[in-house]
Nucleic acid binder design. Structure first.
Lengths: 149, 149
DNA sequence: AGATGTATTAAGAACAGTTCTAAATGATGA
DNA sequence: TCATCATTTAGAACTGTTCTTAATACATCT
């Protein structure tokens, strides 16, 4: 029933299927990733995991996230001026729209992106990783109102 | 007639128009940026500028690039797993396709991206910076051939 | 031309996110 | 139980970028 629990279990299953162990640390990281929902950074994950698991090391968070990434279960998102990498569990093609003032990230799913991805593949000859989102920058609706500063 | 020279002069003119001085260091940085043509990093620019201007400081390269960016004359491009920022003089909307094996970046200009940008603006309410390119990842044609490794 | 004020530059220190290292811990399989 | 191997931990090391400070060069005013 619990969608999130299913998602956490899915990640751990895939880890085990890849011959990795399902440790409590990895469980905690996956749980935080799923429950965060948005586009967490390592620092955010570390901080939250720590609340439930105070002795966890930052290196473990990095390692777990790297492993998940190698298995293609999450993707990395580098955003100009943010200074750290964000991660995204959403592997459907979508646009991540970043506010250049408040840093809010909004997702948009649209067929136009999928069309663009396949067009880029055809035109360039690249084998595009279709599960990756793209990033756009702009002012979010709220910040457009407070533009003057 | 020299297209590149015009572009260099344009950058310097815009610097001066913004009240900045047109110093030899800035000239050298602009020249390297224009002549590079692709998506240079600060390290690449620094190295090349140094050849013609051995006493230039890395800080000056950073400062000049920051200034150009503040004036909207170049844009920054953060690419996952590259570890440093690339810069792009091309302010028309385009897709930067990055090879995940050899790091080659290929540009693609297409109306579909412009359509996507305006659609994203409408749907999300964000005021999208239309001059920014987006990044996609994949295997370039050459690396698709040597995939086995 | 000379003096004054301001922008720019240079060099290197400082910083932050990430990666690496080495030792300790914990699980697995014979 | 013992041996082995993966994993975790803590912190050092690394790297790209930013910051600081003093020196320099340019522009303006008289």
């Amino acid at each position: 029933m619990n969608n999130r629990q299913q998602q956490i279990d899915y990640l751990l299953d895939r880890l085990e299927a890849a011959g990795k162990r399902s440790t409590p640390q990895r469980h905690a990281v996956c749980q935080v990733l799923v429950e965060h929902g948005g586009h967490p950074t390592v620092a955010e994950v570390f901080e939250r995991v720590r609340a439930a698991y105070p002795m966890i090391s930052q290196a473990t968070v990095y390692n777990t996230i790297d492993t998940l990434r190698e298995l293609g279960l999450i993707q990395a998102l580098d955003i100009v001026d943010h200074g750290h990498t964000h991660y995204d569990l959403d592997l459907r093609p979508h646009v991540n729209v970043v506010c250049t003032r408040c840093d809010t990230i909004t997702d948009l799913h649209t067929d136009t992106l999928e069309a663009l991805v396949s067009l880029v593949g055809q035109r360039t000859g690249y084998q595009i990783e279709t599960q990756r989102g793209v990033v756009m920058y702009g002012l979010c609706p709220r910040c457009r109102g407070t533009q003057h500063s």
